[in-house]
């Protein structure tokens, strides 16, 4: 059953200078297109991961779906009850002046208006569920480690009884050993509560562990969307191939690792046609002139024409 559908979602940010400066210096209005015509759908119970380099628009897309931004164009249809979000920085995502029990209770208090006693026992339950003890509710966030704070964030998100949980790089600020614990907790909760995850990450190792399907973002555009097993064994889009080739690989397979070449272009002046053409080894005239449509879940002229498989 489809939980979420995105259709041509685009988001522009106004990054022009102040009106007076623009007037005096004759500068035009400048728009940054952070997300550009993204369409995909999300089924109940699955985990979709969005990957991409910094500035690829992953976080903006997450915030669009969470309702923190409105799309400039396009449509987001959510068929569930509630979305909750877990943020990247566990040091900034908990209000430092609130006790943990207040932080976890806020969604219950605001969304369900339960009695104090009910809320209290629910908070204790949630803290237990994420591997903390109910007594921890009396403490303040600064008394916890990064991993524990992320557990608190998860408890708070679960308090809102979400259908969809958006995780914006939930482990990238944590130590590697703690990352695994948090990921295990998340997949255990998914099984138990039949949650749907939208998982934003730039860490392909993490993504391969948690995701059912993976979408690859480049400069705000979705260049490839495939099941995780397919994407990791047989990447199709040249950009995806480049990413995969850059992943350190532990079973020294003899495969030559190629570093990711070039840098993400300036999103204020994106390349014409296919945004990836300046870095693409298969690029030719048509890629410069024409934006590739997303066919068979890959947006690439070379694949469309069968020049690469």
């Amino acid at each position: 059953m489809t939980l979420l559908e995105l259709d041509g979602v685009t988001r522009d940010f106004d990054v022009s200078r102040r009106w007076l400066n623009r007037l005096l210096e004759g500068e035009p209005r400048r728009l940054l297109r952070a997300v550009d015509g993204v369409s995909f759908s999300l089924e109940r119970g699955e985990t979709l991961a969005l990957v991409g380099e910094s500035g690829s628009g992953k976080s903006t897309l997450a915030r669009l779906i969470a309702g923190l931004y409105r799309p400039t164009q396009g449509r987001i249809a959510f068929h569930g009850k509630r979305v909750q979000m877990i943020f990247q920085d566990p040091y900034a995502s908990l209000n430092p002046r609130w006790r943990v029990r207040e932080i976890v209770a806020e969604p219950i208090r605001v969304l369900f208006r339960r009695s104090t006693a009910e809320t209290c026992s629910k908070v204790g339950e949630l803290l237990l569920q994420v591997g903390l003890s109910p007594e921890d509710g009396e403490k303040y966030p600064h008394q916890f480690s990064g991993g524990q704070r992320q557990r608190i964030s998860i408890a708070r998100a679960l308090a809102g009884e979400p259908d969809l949980l958006i995780c914006d790089e939930p482990t990238s600020a944590l130590d590697v050993s703690v990352q695994a614990q948090i990921l295990n907790l998340m997949s255990e909760l998914q099984r138990r509560l039949s949650l749907t995850y939208l998982f934003i990450s730039h860490n392909l190792a993490v993504v391969s562990q948690v995701a059912d399907r993976v979408g690859v973002l480049y400069l705000g555009r979705l260049v490839e969307l495939a099941s995780a097993s397919e994407l990791f064994t047989r990447p199709r889009h040249p950009y995806t191939r480049m990413l995969m080739d850059a992943v350190p690989d532990i079973e020294i397979s003899g495969r030559a690792r190629t570093p990711v070449a070039g840098e993400v272009p300036n999103p204020l002046a994106p390349p014409s046609g296919c945004a990836f053409h300046p870095r693409c080894p298969y690029a030719y005239d048509r890629c410069v002139a024409e934006r590739p449509p997303s066919l068979d879940r890959v947006a690439c002229h070379a694949i469309e024409e069968g020049r690469i498989s």
Binding site: R63, A66, G67, L68, V83, Q84, M85, F87, Q88, D89, A92, S93, L94, N95, E106, P107, V110, L111, S153, R156, G160
Partner: peptide, 22 residues
């Protein structure tokens, strides 16, 4: 800009409540 404010916005708290409580 901090994420705890965005977390409060996700659950639909009003600007006034966020300003006063957070």
């Amino acid at each position: 800009q901090k994420e705890y404010v965005q977390a409060a916005r996700v659950i639909g708290r009003s600007p006034l409540a966020i300003m006063a409580e957070h």
